[in-house]
Design a protein around this nucleic acid. Structure first.
Length: 593
RNA sequence: GGAGACGUAGCUCAAUUGGUUAGAGUACCGGACUGUCGAUCCGGUGGUUGCGGGUUCGAGUCCCGUCGUCUUCGCCA
């Protein structure tokens, strides 16, 4: 070995011993006749003393190997902020193994560098203790997850990475076949179909860290490539999946964060969370629930409200605590925020001296103002904000506004981990564009028992054995009990407008498998990157991924994607069509054939 | 595909709102210092203001286009 110890492990009890260390030279503190250096590696950093003779060799951020003697520091020179602060190493001999160019940015934790630069030089960014810590936590969480699943007799099974392309769901990344002219593999959007077949295959309990590929625009919490903790269990009901996942969460929070979670996690129905929080992944660490004000203002005399109600609109509100002093400008900033969710605007009331104030009050009957005040149950100094419109828009807007205000007003308690299950999701939603019903999740989710007999009658009302795991307002995972009965599967496909031929063509391999007696089964897929991000209380998924992509799908550390050689294209039977100036002539976006 | 923000020294930012030679911190280079803790002190180098047009006596600043990063809507079964 090129070292006897790592840079982070030397302590007082090593004093007097001869050691060999390897690491990067960071922070040279030159005192003319001698110098101090922090020698660093993944494990920490260690102060090394260089005398006048050895000092000239020092080069910042060079990777060196050195021999020296560990010396206990005198009392007054101990650095309590440093794990190795009670000792230093007196360098006797140093060899530079590798030199460094001047760094594009410094490698401290509190750097303020454009992310673009950090991603381009990810290998340097990763040397920062903060990034080391994040990737270390990620690894620890992963191994705790494995431990927990193994305790419950789950098998880790790998599913294929080159799979059949399915047009359902998100856009596939596609891989051309060299051997099969004009044919393509796809990278899996998730192992969904393959894990279902594992259940038919009798594996009974499966989990996997699965890479999932989705050719969609990236977001703060979404990457082209992400890692999913994928789970499936046979002979199971919804609650069995919950208990298994809770065991895993309990284990990782206890092992990695030393946080003891209370289980079971509470469950809420989809309808309830939508009504109370406007959003299917509510953050329940704070209050500010939505208030249904339609009834209170139904006879207010205010044209805006009355006309809206006549058109079947929803009128809901939230109370922003202590915001009565908000200026018109501040309210309009909030309105601007909800414009992006198609909301028209906000009607604002200030709460003062036990009643509502503000310009809308003048347009309303005294009685309805009082009714609204009572309904809102707000305190003096609060601001009541009403949103009027189509129910899905009002819910989404207020739901997002609630989160926005909570962040703005610092209402979110730190260090709290609020888990919950959202159950009873609708099985179908109406797709305006396609003018048909589509599955809310995917078409293999089982309706709840009471809907099985005639779910065709009112598809929009059908609830499914479909659930999400939510942590602090982040959707961590989504799953369902699957349809293991070919008859029911056929009816669901029928309802979403998929003919038998089409179904055979796209999913025949799966539907055939179900002809051979499947145990009832279900499972869940959990976003591992999101889990790590939320556990570390970070806002951006890229902070917990070693090699993330930028928002336009570029990988800044290697510059991909790139064009490929003509020879490669020929071998794959591909032709790249130049993008034409005339967009109309080229509205088929695909440039590959 | 749409919207917004940003782009000035290697890095992070400033430039009195269109005014003359574009500044600061840090990094880098040189010097001083016998106990520092991302040392300190003194001095110095460093700029095609992302790129291309335009308006103007004059543009980092205004306009148009373009490229890049971030956020977001759409999209993400």
């Amino acid at each position: 070995m090129l070292r006897t110890h790592t840079c982070g492990e030397l302590r007082k009890e090593h004093a007097g011993s001869e050691v060999t260390l390897s690491g990067w030279i960071r922070s040279i503190r030159d005192h003319n006749h001698f110098a101090f250096v922090n020698l660093t590696d993944r494990y920490g950093f260690c102060q090394v003393y260089f005398d006048e003779n050895l000092k000239p060799q020092l080069e910042k951020e060079a990777y060196v190997q050195l021999k020296g003697e560990v010396k206990a520091r005198p009392e007054k020179e101990i650095n309590p902020n440093m794990a190795t602060g009670e000792i230093e190493v007196i360098c006797k001999e140093m060899k530079i193994l590798s030199r460094s160019k001047v760094l594009p940015f410094e490698l401290f934790d509190k750097i303020d560098v454009k992310e673009e630069t950090r991603l381009k030089y990810r290998f340097l960014d990763m040397r920062r203790p903060q990034m080391i810590e994040r990737l270390t936590m990620r690894s620890k969480i992963a191994s705790a997850i494995r431990k927990a699943f193994e305790e419950m007799s789950f098998l880790e099974v790998e599913t294929p990475v080159l799979v059949r392309s399915t047009p359902e769901g998100s856009r596939d990344f596609v891989v051309p076949s060299r051997v099969h002219h004009g044919k393509f593999y796809a990278l899996p959007q998730s192992p969904q179909l393959y894990k279902q077949m594992l259940m038919i295959g009798g594996l009974d309990r499966y989990y996997q860290f699965a890479r999932c590929f989705r050719d969609e625009d990236a977001r703060r919490d979404r990457q082209l490539v992400h890692t999913q903790v994928d789970v499936e269990m046979a002979t199971t009901q919804q609650e069995d999946v919950f208990r298994a996942v809770e065991h895993v969460m309990k284990t990782i929070f206890s092992d990695v964060l030393d946080v003891e979670l209370k289980t079971p996690f509470p469950t809420y129905t989809y309808d309830e969370v939508m009504a109370r929080f406007g959003i299917d992944k509510p953050d329940m660490r704070f209050g500010m629930e939505l208030i249904d004000c339609g009834e209170a203002v139904s006879e207010s005399g205010f044209v805006l409200f009355e006309n809206a109600l006549k058109d079947g609109a929803t009128i809901k509100g939230i109370v922003a605590p202590g915001c009565a002093a908000y200026s018109r400008k501040q309210v309009s900033k909030l309105e601007k925020y909800i414009h992006q969710f198609q909301a028209k605007g906000l009607v604002a009331f200030k709460v003062k001296d036990g009643k509502l104030e503000g310009s809308p009050v003048k347009k309303m009957s005294e009685e309805s103002v009082q009714k609204l005040y009572e309904k809102a149950a707000a305190q003096d100094g609060d601001l009541l904000l009403l949103c009027v419109g189509k129910s899905d828009i009002v819910h989404r807007s207020l739901g997002e506004l609630r989160n926005y205000l909570a962040r703005e007003l610092n209402l979110i308690p730190e260090g709290e981990y609020n888990f919950l299950w959202v159950i009873d999701f609708p099985l179908f939603e109406w797709d305006e564009e396609a003018n048909s019903w589509t599955p809310m999740h995917h078409m293999f989710s089982m309706p709840k028992d009471e809907f099985i007999e005639n779910f065709e009658e009112n598809p929009g009302d059908v609830k499914a054995q479909l659930y999400d795991l939510v942590l602090n307002g982040v959707e961590l995972g989504s799953g369902s009990i699957r349809i293991s009965y070919p008859e029911i599967q056929k009816r669901v496909m029928n309802l979403v407008g998929m003919s038998e031929e089409e179904a055979q063509k796209k999913f025949g391999f799966l539907l055939d498998a179900y002809q051979y007696a499947s145990p009832p089964h279900g499972g869940i897929g959990m976003g591992f990157d999101n889990l790590v991000m939320t556990m570390l209380q970070l806002e951006n998924i890229r902070e917990v991924i070693a090699y993330p992509n930028a928002s336009n799908g570029m990988f800044l550390y290697d510059g991909s994607p790139t064009p490929i050689e003509c020879e490669q294209l020929d071998e794959l039977h591909l032709n790249v069509v130049e993008k034409e100036e005339d967009e109309e002539a080229n509205n088929e976006k695909s440039s590959e054939e």
